[in-house]
Simulated scan of single mutants.
Amino acid sequence: MYGRVYGCDHDDPHPLPHQTYAALVGGPLDGLLLDITGWRPEEVDDGAALMTQLGRWPGGRALCAPRADASRPLGGPGVVCRFYYSGDTP
């Protein structure tokens, strides 16, 4: 596992081997990992609206979710799925 975790400081010891992550693909948060440890499958399916200063609206949210045709997380540690960027919202 590699990369920075969304919402963590640059010097945090992340990612952690016992956590579960979604890799963020595309948009302003591309390349970051989102900690989805403990999320229910339906929460993962819904995706996330993640705060960012880098999107179309500073202080807005980047919309990210798994694709319908993508494999679903198995619930184990590591990167188990990808959340793809679909746009911004204020």
Rank of each mutant, 00 (worst) to 15 (best):
R72F: 10
D69E: 14
G26K: 08
F83C: 04
P41Q: 07
C8N: 11
G38M: 03
T20Y: 00
R67P: 00
A65S: 14
A62H: 09
T89H: 09
P41M: 10
H14D: 11
G26I: 07
R61V: 14
L50M: 10
E42V: 09
A68K: 11
G3Q: 08
Q19V: 00
S71E: 15
E43G: 08
T52A: 09
T89V: 15
G3N: 07
Y84F: 14
S71F: 08
W57A: 14
V80E: 15
G87W: 02
I36P: 02
G76C: 07
M51V: 11
L63N: 05
A68R: 12
A65C: 08
G38E: 07
R56H: 13
C64V: 14
T52H: 07
C8L: 09
Q53V: 08
G60K: 10
A48P: 01
G76S: 06
Y6W: 12
L16V: 07
P58V: 05
Y6K: 03
D45P: 00
H18M: 04
I36W: 01
L16F: 06
D9T: 07
G47C: 03
D35Q: 04
P73R: 05
D9I: 00
D30S: 15
D35T: 05
G47N: 07
R56F: 03
L32N: 02
G75T: 09
Y6F: 12
Q53N: 14
G38T: 04
R56D: 12
W57H: 15
D30E: 15
L29E: 07
P15N: 04
P73I: 04
A22S: 12
G38A: 06
C8I: 00
F83D: 03
A49G: 12
D88F: 06
V80N: 09
D12R: 11
G78I: 02
R61H: 14
G76R: 10
R82G: 03
L32V: 03
P17Q: 08
L63V: 11
S71T: 11
L54R: 15
A48K: 10
T37P: 03
P13R: 13
Y2C: 02
D11L: 06
L29G: 03
R82E: 15
T37C: 02
V80Y: 00
D12V: 01
D35P: 01
P15H: 02
A65R: 15
D11F: 09
C8S: 13
A49Q: 13
L50G: 03
